[in-house]
Design a protein around this nucleic acid. Structure first.
Length: 315
DNA sequence: CGACAATGTGTAA
DNA sequence: TACACCTTGTCGA
């Protein structure tokens, strides 16, 4: 259920909370037992996200590669120190649930210990345990212990990620840094007859966009989802990339997909409630927030596509 | 309690 | 295009 913004938050969370110390790695469900054994006791060096893929890099060169798919999720918990370092402070988000122990570790004056993870509920594919917290993974479509070379192979199959920093010093690979990615995206869109609705869901064209951002950014740019990519100007494609990057960066900050701020809430006040967070996604039959026309719904490549047939009509 | 949908992808037909 | 994957929340009987 998560789109790229959730995975970037998860990478930050793992880097903040689990990096730098040996981790106990197990597979309570058993399905990942062999992979867990390859990682157990190793120190996490860093956590990276590209699109919807998460890479946890360990000190012996192995990488835990996770893709949450449609309904995968991480649960986190730990002691007060874990909670203080946690970058996930907002209420529950899909794809990143938090469960904190309610016990009184502080009363015992012992911050190094915590009650520990709860007994596994359901199918916990992998469980990571550090000195201050734990993480449980369930329902992921991919969970594998791979080599760095294999991780490079995964990255090579992905297009540019708009959440990557455009700073070429931090991100020397032009294929992966934001500015090179923008040009790459424009090139790939203009080269194809494929409808924009399909191109935005193609992880080789732009990595990290899912069904919600797809619908929302096309609306925000007033683009007809059925337009062929090659019918766009380079400028229009560039603006589509820019708006996607901006709205996904908000998603990383907020822990939610909210695309209507700055339009209805002026951007500085409290965040809008869930029912007002989107322009068209899951608003089929309801009036468009701009023009009042009923939001349309179509099944496209086995996914639901929402758009405003009036606002998003070709000029 | 069962049916169904869900912010996704890979594989087979 | 269809289905498998395999989990959870929601809704209706």
């Amino acid at each position: 259920m998560p789109e790229g913004h959730s995975i970037h938050r998860l990478a930050r969370q793992f880097g903040d909370v689990f990096a730098g110390e040996p981790l106990a790695v197990t597979s309570p469900q058993g399905r990942f037992a062999a992979g867990a054994a390859l990682l157990d006791g190793r120190t996490l060096l860093r956590a990276d996200a590209h699109g919807k893929h998460l890479f946890l890099r360990f000190d012996h060169g192995m990488v835990l590669h996770v893709h949450l798919g449609l309904y995968g999720a991480w649960d986190f918990g730990g002691d007060s120190e874990f909670r203080g370092a946690s970058s996930i402070g907002a209420p529950r988000k899909v794809g990143e649930r938090e469960v904190f122990d309610d016990g009184p570790p502080e009363a015992e004056g012992d911050t190094s210990g915590y009650a520990g993870p709860p007994a596994p509920v359901g199918a916990v594919r992998v469980r990571l345990i550090g000195s201050h917290g734990w993480a449980d993974l369930r329902g992921a479509t991919t969970c594998a212990a791979i080599t760095e070379a294999e991780a490079e192979g995964v990255l090579a199959r992905l297009g540019p990620d708009p959440l990557h920093k455009p700073d070429p010093l931090q991100n020397p690979d032009p294929r992966r840094n934001g500015s090179g990615g923008r040009e790459d995206f424009i090139r790939r869109v203009l080269a194809r007859r494929t409808p924009l609705a399909s191109l935005l869901m193609d992880q080789k064209v732009i990595a990290g966009v899912g069904n919600v951002y797809r619908a929302e950014v096309l609306f925000r740019r007033r683009l007809d989802p059925w337009l062929p990519g090659r019918s766009l100007s380079a400028e229009a494609a560039g603006l589509l990339w820019d708006d996607t990057a901006a709205v996904m960066a908000d998603g990383v900050r907020d822990g939610r997909i909210i695309t209507t701020t700055a339009v209805f809430w002026s951007g500085s006040g409290p965040l809008p409630p869930a029912e007002d967070a989107h322009f068209v996604y899951r608003r089929h039959g309801q009036p468009c927030r701009i023009c009042g026309t009923a939001v349309a719904l179509a099944e496209h490549a086995a996914r639901k596509l929402y758009w405003c047939p009036s606002c998003q009509r070709p000029a």
